[in-house]
Design a protein around this nucleic acid. Structure first.
Length: 256
DNA sequence: ATGGTTGCTTAGCAA
């Protein structure tokens, strides 16, 4: 089974590329982030033609997440449902093919010290609490998405320059560590050790051709599922060409 | 400190 995550940065702007990529990569399950549309504007008919169902948590203009799957999903859950502020559409969860899968769009945080920064740290804390409350560690579980945090120096093109920014800040890394301490395995690092692997490159300053990126998109797996992960890749090719997203898809293969 | 780019929405925000 092939599982992928991709921040498409507007599903309308990326519709053609998304459809083309689905046909070439043939994933069974795809977590999408930054749809920037409500559910009624989601290109459901086109995706159905390619054989996908979709669980959508949409929002106008900002955010918006979805999970595409070849098998019809069950138990669709939107947001944390923890009694806190769920106004921003950043989390959707399904059960499908014996797995539980979550698509997450962690807040960017704008600027260290801002309200949005506080919201980012709080959101990661709520994600850990949600895992504690809702997901048994024995489950085959994957939480995939744009975490807007690079875990380690090897995940950053220039760690010294990026140190202390919202994407590579000690507090954000600690908050992500707390999420992972639930018992999540970074699938990409099961298969690749070195630096130089990134999933996001700024549109500006020729960041992509210079490979000045960060690895902020992740597929985190529960222990039972991590044991079945046979491959993990970042599809750099999808960042090339006309009108790419600023993020590349991350793809894992699972022996399930 | 600022700028560089893209997307959504209509000059400015978010990333």
């Amino acid at each position: 089974m092939r599982l992928a995550t991709w921040n498409v940065n507007s599903v309308r702007a990326r519709e053609e590329r998304l459809l083309r990529w689905l046909q070439s990569s043939r994933p069974d399950i795809v977590c999408l982030q930054e749809l920037k549309v409500t559910e009624d504007a989601f290109p459901m008919d086109e995706l159905r033609t390619l054989g996908y169902h979709a669980a959508i948590h949409g929002q106008k203009t900002y955010n918006g997440v979805a999970i595409l799957s070849r098998v019809e999903p069950a138990d669709v859950e939107r947001g944390f449902a923890d009694g806190g502020d769920d106004a921003q559409a950043r989390l959707v969860t399904v059960r499908v093919s014996g797995l539980r899968v979550a698509s997450a769009y962690v807040p960017n945080g704008a600027e260290v010290g801002s309200d949005k920064w506080a919201y980012k740290l709080e959101w990661l804390k709520r994600l850990r609490q949600w895992l504690d409350r809702r997901v048994p560690r024995s489950e085959m579980f994957a939480v995939c998405g744009d975490f807007n945090v690079a875990p380690e120096p090897r995940d950053v093109c220039d760690p010294t320059a990026w140190e202390g920014t919202v994407l590579f800040h000690p507090e954000a890394r600690r908050a992500l560590d707390e999420v992972r301490a639930w018992g999540l395995v970074d699938s990409f690092r099961l298969h690749h050790d070195g630096p130089g692997f990134y999933s996001w490159w700024d549109y500006r300053m020729l960041a992509f051709p210079r490979n000045q990126g960060l690895r902020i998109d992740h597929v985190f797996l529960s222990e039972p599922l991590a044991r079945r992960c046979t491959a993990a890749t970042i599809d750099r090719n999808e960042r090339k060409g006309k009108q790419p997203s600023d993020h590349a898809p991350v793809v894992v293969d699972l022996d399930v």
